[in-house]
Design a binder for these strands. Structure first.
Length: 816
RNA sequence: GCCCGGGUGGCGGAACUGGUAGACGCUACGGACUUAAAAUCCGUUUUCCGAAAGGAAGUGCGAGUUCGAUUCUCGCCCCGGGCACCA
């Protein structure tokens, strides 16, 4: 009696085997080529979702594939354990964030194991543990000493009712998500990391990241936003200090008809002092919340400040305005406005009746009317005195020289990138290791006092941070002068933890250093896989920290991730799965019903990894059906006894054909998994081969040998994707070893050769016939045979042939 | 608003370097097996015309380059991701 395919029992059997042989525990081995395969670690929400299943399966397939190529593969797992959801859960259920988080981690670990992922769990990293975050506190104090961190005022969303800082996500239509109160912008002192000091290197190295998708590199390039321009000063009437602005278009300088400053600019503050209307406008600006998308889409508004600014070339007076779209934190907090040649300035000038003048004309003589639309493109200067007739670069240089000579300006490089604000006014995060002393100022916590441990047993109300109500936490002595001082109660942005965890996996137990020698062996990560939503922030911060760690001598790697795979989201009914929409599918239920292999197979088959994946319950059925067919095919093959040895010299055509298909499939799957990461087409090719095996007629003894070769191949090439069933089938096929220990199969070049090939014949690019020719037929002969085709003749007769294109081995196109 | 993707049958997708559009899977329909159902197996399935052979149209919309365009270029529409305190 045949054994039926029972996913659960064979999956537990395979997993027990891997555990027993410690298959996925790896230590440093300098004799072997290492392969560090990593996924973005999950936030321990407590529930495994389809997005997790997708990303971890992709990575596990790559890890198992590389392993079969003889690589020494490290695949670790850990937890991005700090963050807001734990605080929200604490408010809702009254459980302390730490307790909730640790429980979730325990629950999720079991779910991961059931899916058969090959992790080295000895290296598990949990970011909310003091033995982890102490080292980022330590590096922060080193960065403090080196001047790479600093404190400055910055804007937050303030909920006046809950007395809490809100994340952008918690501001809904300008109101606090829980209180429904109108949110205010508030300036508070916060800690910043000087990522801008690395802007040029972060930009330059993008060109060296050949294993990264172009789209991600392009997004980072634009995010850093390097622009070359000139910083120049305008004198302000009745003021000693000039007003500095940065512009990338100094060639339009003569078209300046007004200037604008941010609401927080000192000139605006001064003008508001004796003008209640300006005061009211500035107040209104402060109501806007901090997201850039809001800034860009809001109605552009402004008010004249009653201050005149002197144009540095003409000496004419232009009015100074305050405008809601000028950002204090970007550039100098002031802009020169050229409405004739800038979209936003043009709209603003039109709205408030400010003059619009033309100072650039097109180089090709196109008519320009700046009263109808601004002319943004580069061109030739006009109405511009000493730069008249000059094109962009010449005008740029002429202005730069003049201002530099007069010491009123200089060439500057400006970045869109801003320094990284790492302070969070939240409880569930790593404490920032700083102590404030009235005499010594901000003092970093000395190394011997690290880590600053976050108290885990707290009352959590959701109003402010509990740390602010814990004198035993914040009352400390100044490390420098021993006077009583106050500990920082802000915590780090959780992006700090995720900016270096990848290195810590190499030395997770090191308690004397952040990283040790083992880091040298494993880093950089060879393959990093994660959601495309992290294309900018996480990946840029990680690159920055890697460079900082390198500069502190902790690592010799310039970049953390050699190859990057950004995976798309899992959708259901066209939308992201979420509890709010009620369109979630619980992976756990599916695993119980169909087994881990079916879930793995479906999620890899449904779409290529970079694309969004549309969930389909029917598709899961299909995956399960395929595995049953696969099981049955192997079983009936085994049941009919041991096949004879393969003798390739005596094969009939059908056998040759199947053998060709076997080797084509090995070649295709190797390329699809190893190079293209198109797991869906690799699976499709394997399905085709199985279909061909089932169709083979057993006319000779050799046919069973051919069938065995094909089945062996399918088991091996599918083993990274559906490792459990393949583990058992491999043993059913009589092999003593297990697929995890096997080498990836090679394909036989000679099996791919074909005697006759099919050539497609087109007339005027339209398919009109097919001809079968010997593989070595020359071009001329192919053209003649093509023309002779009956159906082709119908379209060629009575017409003059103008051209015949022959694509060897593929097609003939006859142009009439 | 800005930056980055995507748009192909009833559905998920394939077509890798400009060369046969729709592989593979799902659904639906028809058939076999069964008292019946499930499961399994066989077949059909882009649309239109045609009994068939075959023909016409067709990859979001509009143009262009080319012997030939899902693929390249330009313009537009729609959908998704990111926009610095969600992770």
């Amino acid at each position: 009696m045949d054994k039926a395919y029972d996913p659960e029992s064979i999956e537990l059997e395979a997993q027990a085997f891997w555990n027993e042989h410690r298959c996925f525990d790896v230590d440093e081995d300098s004799d072997k080529e290492k392969f560090y395969c990593l996924t973005m670690f999950p936030y321990p929400s407590g529930h495994l979702h389809m997005g997790h299943v997708r990303v971890f399966t992709i990575s596990d397939v790559i890890a198992r594939y590389q392993r079969m190529h003889g690589k020494h593969v490290l695949q670790p797992m850990g937890w991005d354990a700090f963050g807001m959801p734990a605080e929200n859960a604490a408010i809702k259920r009254g459980i302390p964030p730490a307790k909730w988080t640790y429980q979730n981690i325990a629950d999720m670990r079991g779910q991961f194991d059931r899916l058969g992922y090959g992790y080295d769990w000895r290296r598990e990293v949990t970011t909310c543990k003091p033995n982890y975050y102490r080292w980022e506190q330590w590096l922060f104090t080193k960065m403090f000493e080196k001047g790479l961190v600093y404190r400055k005022n910055s804007i937050v969303n303030w909920d006046p009712v809950d007395q809490t800082v809100l994340a952008n996500e918690q501001v809904i239509d300008g109101r606090g998500w829980r209180s429904d109160a109108l949110v205010e912008r508030r300036e508070i002192p916060q800690w910043f990391m000087k990522i801008t000091a690395y802007a040029d290197e972060l930009l330059e190295y993008l060109d060296k990241l050949e294993g990264w998708p172009d789209s991600v590199k392009s997004m980072q390039r634009n995010w850093i936003g390097r622009s070359e321009g000139i910083e120049l000063s305008f004198d302000v009437e009745d003021e000693d200090e000039p007003l500095w602005v940065f512009t990338t278009r100094p060639d339009t300088l003569m078209g300046v008809t007004y200037m604008a400053v941010a609401a927080e600019h000192p000139l605006a503050t001064r003008a508001a002092a004796d003008n209640p209307e300006i005061q009211a406008f500035i107040e209104e600006c402060k109501k806007l919340h901090a997201a850039e998308a809001e800034m860009e889409t809001m109605e552009k508004k402004g008010m004249p400040l009653g201050i005149s600014v002197v144009h540095p070339v003409t000496g004419e007076k232009v009015p100074l305005w305050v405008a809601n779209f000028v950002l204090m934190g970007y550039g100098t907090g002031a802009v020169m406005a050229v409405p004739g040649h800038d979209e936003r300035d043009w709209a603003f000038a039109g709205k408030y009746g400010l003059p619009i003048t033309q100072v650039i004309e097109s180089t090709d003589g196109t008519e320009i009317d700046v009263s109808k639309a601004p002319y943004i493109a580069y061109g030739k200067s006009v109405n511009s005195g000493f730069i008249d007739g000059l094109e962009f670069q010449a005008a740029f240089d002429a202005i730069a020289e003049r201002f530099e000579k007069e010491k009123r300006g200089k060439r500057t490089v400006n970045y869109r990138l801003r320094d990284w604000g790492v302070s969070r006014q939240r409880y569930w995060g790593s404490p920032i290791p700083i102590i404030y002393c009235d005499d010594c100022g901000a003092v970093p916590v000395p190394e011997k006092d690290l880590p600053v441990v976050l108290p885990e047993d707290v009352e959590f109300t959701g109003v402010g941070s509990p740390l602010k109500d814990m004198p035993e936490f914040y009352n400390v002595d100044c490390p420098s002068c021993a006077k009583s001082a106050r500990r920082e109660t802000d915590t780090f942005d959780t992006f700090v933890e995720s900016s270096w965890y990848f290195s810590r996996y190499a030395s997770p137990d090191s308690d004397t250093a952040m990283l040790d020698k083992r880091e040298e062996y494993w880093m950089p990560v060879d393959q990093y896989t994660g959601g495309v939503e992290h294309a900018i922030l996480h990946l840029l911060y990680s690159r920055f920290w890697q460079k900082v760690m390198r500069d502190f001598g902790l690592s010799s790697a310039d970049e953390p991730f050699t190859n990057l795979l950004t995976q798309g989201m899992v959708l259901k009914d066209g939308a992201k799965m979420s509890k709010n929409k009620g369109n979630t599918v619980d992976p756990q239920e599916l695993i119980e019903r169909y087994g881990a292999d079916t879930v793995r197979l479906f999620i890899m088959f449904a779409a290529p990894p970079e694309q969004a994946l549309e969930w389909s319950d029917d598709g899961v059925q299909g995956a399960s059906r395929f595995l049953k067919r696969f099981w049955t095919a192997v079983q009936s093959h085994v049941d009919s006894g041991k096949p004879p040895a393969l003798d390739t010299t005596t094969l009939n055509d059908a056998e040759k054909e199947l053998r060709r298909k076997t080797h084509q499939t090995i070649a295709k799957v190797s390329d699809d998994i190893g190079r293209r990461y198109t797991f869906n087409t690799a699976i499709a090719a394997s399905m085709e081969l199985l279909n061909a095996v089932n169709k083979l007629e057993h006319a000779t003894l050799q046919s069973r040998a051919i069938e065995r070769e094909a089945l062996d191949a399918i088991v091996l090439v599918l083993s990274p994707i559906v490792p459990h069933i393949c583990h058992v089938l491999w043993s059913m096929l009589g092999h003593e070893s297990a697929p995890v220990f096997e080498q990836w199969p090679d394909f036989d070049e000679s099996a791919l050769e074909q005697d006759t090939i099919e050539i497609v014949v087109q007339v005027n690019g339209k398919l009109r016939g097919r001809i079968s020719v010997a593989a070595d037929t020359d071009k001329e002969r192919v053209a003649i045979l093509a023309l002779a085709d009956e159906n082709v003749q119908r379209f060629v007769v009575d017409k003059e042939i103008q051209k015949t294109i022959v694509v060897p081995g593929k097609l003939v196109n006859i142009v009439v």
